[in-house]
Nucleic acid binder design. Structure first.
Lengths: 111, 111
DNA sequence: ATTATATCTCAATATTTATTGAAATATTGG
DNA sequence: CCAATATTTCAATAAATATTGAGATATAAT
């Protein structure tokens, strides 16, 4: 992930309702959750939730599919992984720095 | 890390100059970098960089120390780790979901 | 077809956040 | 003490983002 996309993803997550919704989606797994379910769970008005989900979608952090009259959102795991990797990339210039961070795992094994 | 602190951290990182500065600090390791060095490296005015570094500091993502006339900033690695853990916490409800994410590593081994 | 449900879009307003430049503070060297 | 360096603080302006409510669209059930 490059800088612009990373900033879009971080901005998307840096909001109470969106962070709560995204975490619910991460925990829900690939089956995802309906927009209305998320709105109720995080306490947002439907139109506000729609706006927020569009932000997460635009940032590439979630995917959506229609199922009946509901629109189901799911976490985009590779995007999340890429975000974490970008933040920890090349930690301590790549030295075995002994710092208590998952950087080694995040930055090299996953992309 | 709880929701409010996480949002502060994500907001702090969701800005071009601050993200660039934080990544430089992560890569620089515990020795850190001076405010002026960061300002020049990311192309920000000194007063703007000061504002941005204060945001990162307020979010707990960096620490600072004076060294001569310079103020040296360093990445706060445990804070970064906590942020990553919060995002991936309880991924797929804790099931072995087989999803390509460092969640298992981030959420349980580090806090 | 009609009605109800689920969600989205749009425009207006309110709020938050970033940038700029001038002035203040702290430190070092002469 | 005085001048130079490094950084911060403050106030003004500019720009981006969130919230609200009304209306539009798509789907399903009767």
């Amino acid at each position: 992930m490059e800088a612009a996309g990373t900033i879009r993803a971080l901005s998307a997550l840096a909001q109470e309702h969106r962070l709560a919704a995204f975490r619910l989606l991460v925990q829900a797994g690939p089956e995802g959750l309906a927009a209305g379910t998320l709105a109720e769970a995080v306490g947002a008005a439907p139109s506000a939730m729609s706006f927020h989900l569009a932000q997460l979608d635009h940032a590439g952090l979630v995917t959506q599919r229609r199922e009946g009259r509901s629109i189901i959102y799911s976490a985009n795991y590779p995007a999340m992984t890429g975000l974490l990797a970008y933040l920890t990339e090349n930690c301590c210039a790549g030295d075995a720095c002994g710092i208590d961070t998952p950087a080694a795992c995040v930055s090299t094994e996953f992309a």
